[in-house]
Amino acid sequence: MHLVITSAEDATAHLLCERLGGQVLRVNWEAWEQYDIEIDAHGFRLSDRYGREVTNTTLGNILWRKPVPSVSRTQGERWYGFQEFRAGVTAILGEVRRQAPEKLLVDPERLARTDRFHQLRTASRHLTTPNWVYTSTPSRGNWCGRRWVVKSMAGQPIPYSGPPDRVMFTRAVDPGDLADGWPWLVQELIDAPYDLTVVYVNGVCFGFLLERAFLPGLDWREAIGTQLADSGWRPVTLSAGVEKALRDTMADLELRFGRLDLLAHDADCRDVVFLEVNANGQWAWLDIDGRHGVMEAVVRFITASNDPVA
């Protein structure tokens, strides 16, 4: 039995667990009351109300789906119960990491060490990357001769700026106009006609291309929910050179799974620029009906045989 740790609002997990059927126990950790957990000197057990159960002797693989939703502190005892349940699940992950790390397909500890700057430095060994700087004193920068954008590092909404709370998408800026005293990620603006996103599944690359001419701004995420963002991506065959560069980058980052964001100067994607890796992001919208092989590749990745945790 495989284990998917996620939250109730995760649409990608909905599609994935449908394909996995009875092979998976899905834990929506903010709904912690719906699960039984037991950890003792001999191992662990997690089960749901439908009778699905994972133990240290029956565990296949674990997919950590970035379960962001939590429980509000205003819920008092329920918030406390959630914190205790989360600590228990984290302890299970820790034991699997020590005993059988290959079973953690997406490891939260690894993700914490794969920050944006590490990604850019690593990718620059194999791919073209934009110039960038993270600074709280933009007034001191030497910005002449290039165009720039400002990006969010954390990608978090700004509280009380909505509703809904606003997100800072990628924006073209003159860095000299940015206020000192605030941390800014400033990156060279790359004028390219295509967005390229690549779903990387254990060494296999699935590329998808989007024409930027139809976007309302620089950041394609601003179009999410529109027909363009939802269905404008088309599969593309990557050159052997680009695929090797992507595999080498992911190997250096010690990641087996992720969605890479790049820009492409040509429709054949031979001239590309690396932007970032989302090591645990959404990807199912690119292959909802399974025609492009991504969903099947992820299912195979999750269900690959490993020995049980001792």
Rank of each mutant, 00 (worst) to 15 (best):
L238R: 00
H265E: 05
D115Q: 11
T128E: 14
V201E: 08
V150M: 11
E254K: 12
Q227L: 07
L189N: 04
A100Q: 15
G181K: 03
A8F: 11
D219W: 00
Q23S: 12
L262N: 00
V68P: 00
T135D: 06
H14N: 13
P101S: 06
R19N: 07
I302T: 10
V71I: 14
S124M: 09
I92M: 07
V106R: 06
R45L: 15
R45G: 02
V199Q: 10
G94D: 14
H14W: 14
G88T: 05
V4E: 03
R221Q: 09
V71D: 08
S124G: 14
E102P: 02
Q83L: 12
I302N: 13
L93D: 07
A154I: 02
T57N: 08
C17E: 02
A310H: 12
A264W: 01
F274Y: 14
L246D: 05
R98D: 12
V68H: 14
Q34T: 03
G22L: 00
G232Q: 01
A297G: 09
H126N: 05
S231I: 02
V309L: 09
F44R: 01
V186L: 10
V24N: 00
A154M: 00
K66H: 13
P163C: 03
R26P: 00
H42A: 15
I92N: 03
L20P: 02
W132L: 10
A172T: 08
L93T: 04
T122W: 09
A251S: 05
T303E: 10
G181D: 04
V106L: 01
A87Q: 13
S136I: 04
G76T: 09
L246Y: 04
G81K: 01
V150D: 05
V167I: 11
A154P: 03
H292D: 15
E33G: 05
G290E: 08
H118W: 09
L286R: 01
R221H: 11
S239V: 04
W148E: 01
W233V: 03
L218H: 04
R97A: 14
V96K: 08
E53R: 09
A41F: 06
D36M: 02
G207C: 06
K151S: 10
F208R: 05
D268H: 10
Q75G: 02
F169C: 03
E33T: 14
D195H: 12
A304T: 15
V198E: 03
D248H: 05
A154T: 00
G207E: 06
D307K: 13
P69C: 09
Q23V: 00
